[in-house]
Simulated scan of single mutants.
Amino acid sequence: MKTWLSIRAYAKLVGKDFDEVLALVDSGEIVSKEEDGEIFIEADSQRHLPSASAGGEVLKVDLETGDGIQFVEKTIGTILTMHEKVVDAKDETLQALKNENQFLKDALMSMQELYDEDRKTIETLSNELNATREELEFMKRKYKLMWGKVVEKHAGAEK
């Protein structure tokens, strides 16, 4: 798929006057087309990019030797490799987070089970404590009934 720029946008991109770009179009040095009365330039026409500008250097592509194309291909390859490494690192991070979340979930479930067991133990101990209190009260009443009068007689006789 080709990308097309208006002639004014292309002129601005390559740093040339509109008339210079129009002359290049007329001479056939630049691939162009006309639609609705407006001229469009193929954006891949890099032959007329400036080799240097006031703001800094611009990569000069020599289309015949392919040196610039090889540089661009290597750069794209490097970017793709770095992207793959980032994606792999992201996947590893996600897997580590999933593992950590599973560990935390298991720990939480284990703590919940321990809590339930402790709650049952507390309930059982509370029931046993209440039963022991009732038994103690029963034994006190029984003791008073059995030994209360004997203790009173014996306490009264010693006086």
Rank of each mutant, 00 (worst) to 15 (best):
M1I: 00
M1N: 05
K2Q: 11
W4A: 06
L5A: 00
S6N: 09
A9H: 04
A9L: 02
A9V: 05
V21T: 07
V21R: 03
V21P: 05
V21H: 07
L22T: 10
A23C: 08
A23L: 07
S27K: 04
S27R: 05
V31D: 14
S32C: 08
D36Q: 14
D36H: 13
G37T: 14
I39H: 05
F40E: 04
I41S: 02
A43G: 07
D44M: 14
D44C: 11
S45R: 07
Q46C: 11
Q46R: 12
L49Y: 15
S51D: 14
S51R: 14
S53T: 15
V58Y: 02
V58N: 06
L59V: 02
K60W: 14
V61P: 02
V61R: 02
L63Y: 11
E64V: 09
F71A: 11
V72A: 15
E73K: 09
K74W: 06
T78M: 10
L80I: 06
T81N: 13
M82W: 13
K85E: 13
D88K: 14
K90H: 06
K90A: 08
D91P: 04
T93Q: 11
T93A: 13
Q95G: 01
A96L: 06
L97G: 02
N99R: 02
N101C: 00
N101P: 00
Q102Y: 03
K105E: 06
A107E: 10
A107V: 05
M109V: 01
M109W: 00
S110V: 00
Q112G: 04
Y115H: 14
D116Q: 11
R119G: 07
R119E: 14
K120A: 13
K120T: 11
T121C: 10
S126F: 01
L129C: 12
N130Q: 13
A131R: 12
A131N: 14
T132E: 15
E135H: 11
F138N: 09
R141F: 07
K142V: 07
Y143N: 14
K144M: 10
K144P: 01
M146C: 00
A157N: 12
E158I: 10
